[in-house]
Nucleic acid binder design. Structure first.
Length: 418
RNA sequence: GUGGGUGUAGCUCAGUUGGUAGAGCUCCUGGUUGUGGUCCAGGUGGCCGCGGGUUCGAGUCCCGUCACUCACC
């Protein structure tokens, strides 16, 4: 382990304590404490982009075992506006979620609105490298410059400007317990030269984010402290990833350092573990590491054993709305003919509300009939599946059964495909 | 009974001056990793109501016939 900083002064309202270590790896358990409660790590943070976990009630989200919810600053800035969320008592109160909350900075939208697609994982990139990537048939809705990003709203076409300072101002108004630095997310199709310049830009923005965060925090001392995470970029390049991580770890602006770190960007699935390992090695052991946009079972194990503490991902809810459901024996689409007369739960071993009360045939019917309950029930199941898996991973680190859990879980989950 | 209309994919319908058929939906199968997604991609499926005729060639033109439908007796 290198690049670690001395322990920062304890901050009121936010802390991270490392628990058990995974034998033979840099995985660990831990406890994140926020003004709205604690998070036992490793943990899966449920995504509620627009201040709602699509199709499910907050009470249900809590019953799923979700420990925290992550919303998006860019989306809430556009609608309803950060001032309204602030006037509504802040993100958690506004959406009736009493537990810990996160907001993403809008950095992801720099890429997704810019290039018109979101394929940043497991993409065949041979021969496609480019400085100016845009999906065929899509118009660019975001343009990056050194100072910030100009967006064209996907809602009404209006033009908006995001800079590190503006993102932080928005996130402070939203009031989540954990906020992220405004970064630039590239795709695997960008050239090495572009990735290099992008990492430098993200670092320069990180400095501005810390300065603005410090200013805003000092301005409102009466408010609960919002923890600030820096985001490590660098695509698939070891030197860029390590340099980015080390740079953020060492960064301190007028005594203000990052409280934790996000690991994001273009992550080739095959290199996910390796990249996470590079980054973890450069980051301080006593601050939490959040994997942005990861939830596939094999990816969760890979990231945890390489030092990741928390995850968020839209996948469980997004695929649920399109009829894909996870089971211990792999994923399948419940809207296909195989489920029409299957009067069994999605996963007989699952402890979720959906599996306790509903059959595949019923869910199949709901999807065919385009009933809204289909999305709700499958979202409940999928979110519970991922939360439960990460919970079991956490327990297994503590009781020494991690290797067994991993072998059994992945062996079953991918049996059909291997 | 008379006159008109319609018969093309499971459904609703397109099919240009005749050159062995298309769309949407359905159906089937994939996909979805910091939500531009209540979606995207691909695929199966038709002796064009039936029988004759004209023509090198007919879903297209002609004759007959059957079914459904509308109007009037």
């Amino acid at each position: 382990m290198s690049g670690g900083l001395p322990s920062p002064a304890a901050r009121v309202g936010f802390s991270f304590e490392v628990g058990d270590q995974l034998a033979g790896g840099c995985g660990r358990t831990g406890t994140i404490t926020t003004p709205h409660g604690t998070i036992q790590t490793p943990a899966f943070v449920v995504v509620g982009t627009k201040a709602t976990v699509k199709t499910v009630l907050p009470e249900t989200v809590a019953e799923l075992g979700a420990q925290a919810v992550l919303a998006n600053a860019y989306h809430l800035y556009l609608q309803p506006g950060a001032d309204i969320v602030e006037a509504g008592g802040g993100l958690g109160r506004f959406m009736n979620w009493p537990g810990p909350t996160y907001t993403d900075s809008g950095g992801f939208q720099v890429m997704s609105l810019g290039v018109g697609f979101k394929k940043v994982l497991a993409m065949d990139v041979a021969g496609l490298a480019s400085d100016d990537v845009v999906a065929a048939g899509k118009s660019r809705l975001a343009r990056v410059d050194e100072d910030g990003v100009t967006f064209t709203s996907h809602l009404d076409g209006s033009s908006h400007r995001f800079t590190p300072e503006i993102s932080l101002q928005v996130q402070h108004r939203l009031g989540a317990d954990v906020i992220f630095a405004f970064d630039e997310l590239t795709t695997l199709m960008n050239t090495r030269g572009y990735q290099e310049r992008s990492v430098e830009r993200t670092h320069a923005w990180a400095i501005r984010c810390l300065a603005e965060h410090r200013r805003l925090t000092a301005e409102r001392p009466e408010r609960p402290y919002q923890a600030m995470f820096g985001v490590v970029q660098g695509a698939q390049y070891e030197d860029l990833r390590r340099r980015a991580a080390r740079g953020l770890a060492e960064l301190e602006v007028d005594g203000q350092a990052f409280d934790g770190f996000g690991i994001g960007g273009a992550l080739e699935k095959q290199k996910l573990g390796t990249i996470t390992g590079w980054v973890s090695a450069e980051l301080p052991v006593d601050k939490p590491r959040h994997m942005l946009g990861i939830s596939e079972p094999d990816d969760l194990f890979t990231c945890v054993e390489n030092g990741a503490d928390t995850f968020d991902c839209v996948s469980p809810s997004r695929v649920a709305r399109n009829a894909a459901v996870y089971t211990r024996d792999g994923r399948f689409n419940v809207n296909t003919a195989a489920s029409r007369r299957s009067f069994e739960p999605i996963d007989a071993e699952c402890d979720c509300y959906t599996c306790a009360h509903y059959t595949r045939a019923y869910l199949h019917h709901l999807f065919k009939a385009r009933e809204m309950l289909a999305a709700t029930l499958c979202t409940i199941h999928n979110e519970r599946f991922v939360i439960s898996l990460v919970d079991r991973i956490r327990t297994s680190i503590s009781d020494g059964s991690y290797a067994d859990l991993k072998a059994e879980t992945l062996g079953r989950y991918y049996a059909r495909h291997r």
